[in-house]
Amino acid sequence: MELRQLHYFVKVAKKEHVTQAAEELHVAQSAVSRQIHQLEEELGVKLFVQKGRNLQLTPVGQLFLKRVEVILADLERSVIEIHEFLDPEKGEIRLGFPHSLGISLIPQVVAAFRKQHPNVKFRFKQGMYPTLIRDMIKGDIDLAFISPFPDEHEFVCGEVLLTEELYAILPPGHRFSEEESIKLRELEDETFVLFSEGYSLRPIVWEACQEAGFTPKIGFEGEETDTIRGLVAAGMGVSLLPEMALHYTGPLQPAKVRVTEPQVTRTIGLIRRTNEKLPLVAKVFHAFLLRYFQERIQESQ
Rank of each mutant, 00 (worst) to 15 (best):
A208N: 08
P148D: 04
A212T: 01
L162R: 12
R185P: 00
L170W: 04
L101G: 03
V156R: 10
H174N: 11
R4H: 08
P172I: 00
E89F: 09
E186D: 15
F155W: 09
T265P: 00
G222R: 03
Q301N: 12
L290P: 06
V68F: 04
E159N: 15
L95D: 06
F85L: 13
P130E: 13
K217W: 02
T227A: 05
A112N: 03
A112K: 12
T191A: 10
P98D: 05
D189I: 09
V32P: 04
K51W: 06
V156F: 03
V45I: 11
L75A: 11
G235E: 03
Q62V: 13
E41G: 10
G237S: 09
V238F: 07
L290V: 12
E159P: 11
F288M: 10
G235Y: 03
K14D: 02
R272C: 11
A208W: 04
A212N: 02
L72W: 01
P254I: 02
N119I: 01
P172D: 07
Q35A: 13
L201G: 05
D140W: 10
V18T: 13
K14V: 09
H286Q: 09
Q38T: 12
H153L: 12
Q56L: 14
L63W: 09
Q108K: 15
K51S: 14
R229I: 01
T227W: 08
V232W: 03
S30F: 06
E276I: 14
L166T: 07
S78D: 14
E41N: 15
W206E: 12
E42F: 13
I133V: 15
L280Y: 10
Y248T: 11
R291S: 11
A31Y: 05
R273P: 04
Q126W: 03
V205N: 07
L43E: 13
R296V: 07
T249I: 10
V49Q: 14
I182W: 03
S147Q: 14
K115T: 13
M128T: 15
V27Q: 02
C209T: 11
E186W: 12
L194Y: 06
L201E: 05
H7Q: 13
L143S: 04
L194T: 14
E276Q: 15
T58A: 09
R291G: 01
K256Q: 13
V32L: 02
R272H: 14
E276D: 04
L290F: 03
I106D: 00
P118F: 01
I103M: 11
I82R: 12
V281H: 05
F64Q: 14
V79E: 13
H83W: 06
L63A: 15
A31E: 02
R67A: 15
D140Y: 09
I182E: 00
Q5F: 09
K283G: 12
K138C: 06
A212S: 09
R114M: 11
H26P: 00
F155L: 14
E23M: 11
R123M: 09
A255W: 00
F155G: 03
T267W: 00
S300W: 09
I297L: 09
A111E: 14
H17K: 11
L184A: 08
L43V: 06
E221V: 15
G219W: 03
G61R: 01
